[in-house]
Design a binder for these strands. Structure first.
Length: 489
RNA sequence: GGUCACGUGGCCGAGCGGCUAGGCAGAGGUCUGCAAAACCUCGUACAGCGGUUCAAAUCCGCUCGUGACCUCCA
């Protein structure tokens, strides 16, 4: 919980319903690794709460207006409009293109789509209403056709800065002198609720204060309260949004709705590249489609979406995660190991043979299965879940290679083993096989030939088939109890 | 300058007072026509210096180092 810097027991306002709002992308460019981390982090929250039986309404917005290139001076260009001019497109064309790309990338990462995905431009009237309410409460003022939030006024009754732990009195005292374009604001900390549209602006709407467009922070307050109520359970986003974006959201809601909007704030940490923050302004960001194709100067290889997902999940969401080829290569191998185990687990059947009961194994499986749940309950600790899954996998593999008889576990423990492995890997962590089923059938057909050749001791043929499959990333496995295949690592 | 994080074995990365994290890489072994996979065994890690405690990677203090936020970014 960001505001109190603590872990807290989750208690929904209206169980079994849960309302969750997460800040989505500003669609003026392709999604990068950072977007992936945020989306995956809250996908895990969405999945796990759903897994626990909650009825989750997950709202994640698309910012398609109002996000300026220079928020502090309030003078910047709208990001979407700038891109539209640059590419000679309609602003909504830009929005649609990058929204589509975002969906494409997130789908590949196996991120569930939210329940509602509202756009800022589709909720102008709600935003105008909210501005009006804040004005009526006296926490905002109109100036030259724009409306600004009055921070000093608000701070007399509330605490602006409580989420990010900032002392606003200090900030007010340390006002910067050198900012231009501040004349409209009474105080540099005041932020825009509604901006007057300059003649060159492409996107604008009529309002009681003239033609203009909403401030960036406004959309989240307006849309979250519309779909989740004035107070809701979880609000998520990247750590970099804590201040000022989420701070402003709190202020807007408290000023306009008289209620603290969010019960639990959750912020995911950022991805670093060689120890440095990744960001557009630093020019070191990597787009997801570049990762998937390997087309980037920092990349030694292409990495699949599931490799990226696994990489993200191996660290706790509140830790920084450093990107490197070494780390991605390690994640790729680990993912393949896990997914090969998953394939086996899904096909494994209980065999009721004569076998001495292995109480130690039973006990360990029981513990590990429980530990998966406990780890998720403890602030979504996916890293620990993965560690437990690898330990469970050892049993799956032992049964598979007949090093352990399934009967020795008893049906109940066996089912617990399989069920935990499959459910947590697929449903909770959202890791899946990346190869389509058709592949399975094709390879099996080839393996029949392989088996025949082997019976005939035609080893040159055998080697040839194996080499051919290896070329396409399929590994043939000759085992004591049969022949099968796995993805090559 | 202000605020706040973090420094874990060759690498990534959990843990946050006592109980094996896990993965990758590496070494040895079992199995095997070969090769791989799988399984078993192996690393005496917690920036440094003090302190608290029966017990500290885990709490406190100092030092050093890295990073983030304070301006748009997930």
């Amino acid at each position: 919980m960001t505001e109190r810097r603590t872990k807290e027991i989750f208690q929904p306002l209206n169980p079994p319903y849960v309302g969750m709002y997460v800040c989505g992308p500003t669609v003026y460019g392709d999604a990068h690794l950072g977007h992936a981390r945020a989306a995956i982090t809250f996908d895990i929250v969405f999945r796990y709460l759903t897994y626990l039986g909650y009825k989750v309404r997950y709202v994640r917005n698309i910012t398609d207006v109002g996000h300026l290139t220079d928020e502090v001076a309030g003078e910047g260009e709208d990001r979407i409009a700038k891109k539209a001019k640059l590419e000679r497109l309609e602003p909504m064309e830009v929005v649609q293109r990058y929204t589509n790309n975002y969906h494409r990338d997130m789908d590949q990462l196996n991120v569930w789509r939210p329940s509602i995905e509202p756009r800022a431009s589709g909720h102008i009237s709600e935003q105008i209403e909210l501005v009006q309410r804040i004005l009526n409460e006296g926490f905002a003022y109109e100036s030259h056709g724009s409306v600004y939030f009055d921070i000093p006024r608000y701070n007399q009754q509330h605490r602006y800065g409580k989420l990010s732990g900032r002392n606003i009195d200090d900030m007010l005292a340390n006002t910067r002198e050198d900012l231009s374009g501040q004349q409209e604001k009474r105080n540099p900390l005041d932020f825009a609720l509604w901006k007057k549209a300059q003649p060159e602006h492409l996107m604008h709407w009529p309002s009681p204060w003239g033609n203009g467009f909403p401030g960036w922070h406004l959309e989240c307050s307006a849309m979250s309260s519309k779909y989740l109520g004035k107070q809701f359970d979880i609000h998520g986003g990247g750590m970099d949004l804590t201040f000022p974006h989420h701070e402003c959201e709190i202020a807007q809601s408290e000023a306009g709705n008289h209620v603290e909007p969010v019960r639990y704030w959750m912020h995911n940490n950022l991805i670093t590249i060689n120890g440095q923050k990744m960001g557009r302004s630093l020019g070191n960001f990597i787009n997801l489609n570049e990762i998937f194709t390997g087309d980037h100067k920092l990349l030694l290889h292409a990495y699949t979406p599931m490799t990226v997902r696994f990489f993200v999940l191996q660290a706790h969401y509140r830790s920084t995660l450093d990107f490197s080829n070494e780390a991605l290569i390690a994640a790729r191998k680990a993912y393949k190991r896990l997914i090969n185990g998953l394939r086996i687990a899904k096909r494994l059947e209980f065999k009721d043979t004569q076998a001495a009961e292995d109480t130690q194994a039973k006990e360990e499986i029981r513990k590990l299965a429980g530990a998966c749940q406990i780890a998720m309950d403890d602030d979504f600790n996916t890293a620990v879940v993965i560690a437990n899954l690898f330990n469970l996998l050892k049993f799956v593999n032992k049964i598979h290679t007949d090093a352990l008889a399934s009967a020795a576990l008893g049906e109940e423990s066996f089912q617990l083993l399989i069920q935990t492995t499959v459910e947590f890997t697929e449903n909770v962590l959202g890791l899946k096989e990346e190869q389509p089923d058709a592949l399975d059938q094709l390879v099996n057909a080839l393996l029949e030939l392989y088996t025949d050749a082997k019976h005939n001791k035609a080893y040159d043929k055998v080697d040839q088939i194996r080499a051919r499959l290896k070329e396409v990333g399929i590994l043939v496995k000759d085992m004591r109890n049969g022949i099968e295949w796995a993805y090559e690592e």
